[in-house]
């Protein structure tokens, strides 16, 4: 095999099927961090997501002989999300709607560095700070592109709850970007070089 970094995902998987440990390590190097981030959107616990992600690779190796993968990245992503969702279910996280108070971050938070990347950072941090249920639902909608109904089915909750949580999430995000709007930068980002 030529330089391992120029090998395609599917070639790596083929090599893994032939017991190639170097290819296994290369696949790990390529996707471990990516899967950590993916899992983190669902489970905000550093140790847990490392366990879940390591599980994914462990199983890849264990059942390498029967692997049938067409899109490696999507397969890995789906695997770690399934594990994260199972973990959430095992924790019996309460996903049904209740009338809990919902904190909206302080609107007056002043942003000094007015850069688009900074805006993305604010959005990232805001998503991270959402309550578990709200965050998981939001991530399933935005990152996985699942429909309200699909999310409701996966989490065994009503579509109404999903919709409410999504509305809450976008409200919180809107509040978080307020300093940018009043500072005028947002419009620049909207129509400028972004």
């Amino acid at each position: 095999m030529p330089s391992i970094s120029s090998t395609s995902d599917l070639e790596l998987v083929e090599a893994i099927k032939a017991d190639d440990q170097k290819a296994f390590r290369a696949l790990f190097d390529r996707y471990y961090k990516y899967l950590l981030v993916t899992a983190y959107a669902y489970v905000k616990d550093d140790n847990t997501i490392r366990d879940l992600t390591q599980d994914v690779f462990f199983e890849i190796w264990k059942k390498r002989n029967s692997l049938n993968i067409r899109n490696v990245k999507a397969y890995l992503r789906r695997s770690v999300i399934n594990k994260a969702l199972n973990h959430i279910k095992a924790q019996r996280m309460n996903f049904e709607d209740s009338n809990e108070a919902f904190d909206v971050p302080d609107r007056a938070r002043v942003q000094e560095e007015l850069e688009a990347s900074q805006l993305q950072k604010v959005i990232n941090e805001t998503i991270e700070s959402l309550p578990d249920r709200c965050r998981v639902i939001f991530v399933m909608r935005r990152m996985e592109g699942l429909s309200l109904k699909e999310i409701a089915t996966k989490l065994d909750i009503s579509p109404k709850t999903v919709e409410n949580q999504l509305t809450k999430a976008i409200k919180v995000l809107r509040a978080a970007v307020e300093p940018y709007v009043s500072g005028g930068l947002f419009i620049f980002i909207l129509f400028g070089i972004f």
Partner: peptide, 16 residues
């Protein structure tokens, strides 16, 4: 503003 926020929200990432 809302639309852009919604769009940017799909680029969630984090440094580990």
């Amino acid at each position: 503003v809302l639309k852009k926020t919604w769009e940017m929200s799909s680029n969630f990432s984090k440094d580990f």
